Simulated assay, not measured.
Amino acid sequence: MASTVYEKLVGILDETFRVEPEVIRADATLAELELDSLAVAELAAMVQDEFGVRVSGQEVGKDSTLGEVAAVIGAKLPSAAVAGG
């Protein structure tokens, strides 16, 4: 389920990028969460470390919503990993 991916992304945004949890929403763009291009690239690297998948700048950018990012990652994961097990 993509919610596991989403929850991990929320944790990364909170812990690494210091985004306040109350402003993190699935429909918020990365730009609205104050991630610039460099931070988006850093997030992509962290996604690769955390989930073992690569996301490109064509798939995820400052105008992508957090929900879209989670969906891109979820689509690349084996179904067992998406379900959290």
Rank of each mutant, 00 (worst) to 15 (best):
V82D: 03
A2F: 01
L35K: 02
I12Y: 01
V72P: 09
E20T: 04
M46T: 11
V55P: 02
L77V: 05
L66V: 13
E34I: 05
D14A: 13
T4Q: 08
L33R: 10
L33D: 11
K62G: 06
E32A: 14
E32K: 01
A75G: 11
K8N: 04
E50G: 03
Q48K: 11
E59K: 08
I24L: 07
T16D: 09
G85R: 12
V69S: 01
L66T: 09
A70Q: 00
G84Q: 05
K76R: 02
L77R: 11
V19F: 01
A2I: 10
A39K: 14
S79Q: 13
D63S: 15
E15C: 05
A2E: 15
A45V: 13
A39H: 00
E50V: 01
I12D: 06
K76P: 01
A44S: 15
E42D: 15
V53T: 07
E7N: 13
L13P: 00
I24E: 15
K8A: 03
V60T: 06
L13M: 06
L77D: 03
A70D: 04
G84H: 09
M1E: 09
L33T: 09
L43P: 09
E20H: 14
V72L: 02
V47F: 04
V23P: 02
D63I: 05
P21Y: 10
S79H: 07
Q48E: 07
T29A: 09
F17C: 00
E68W: 13
Q58V: 07
V72C: 06
A70I: 08
T16L: 02
R25E: 01
T29W: 00
D49S: 08
L33P: 12
L30A: 09
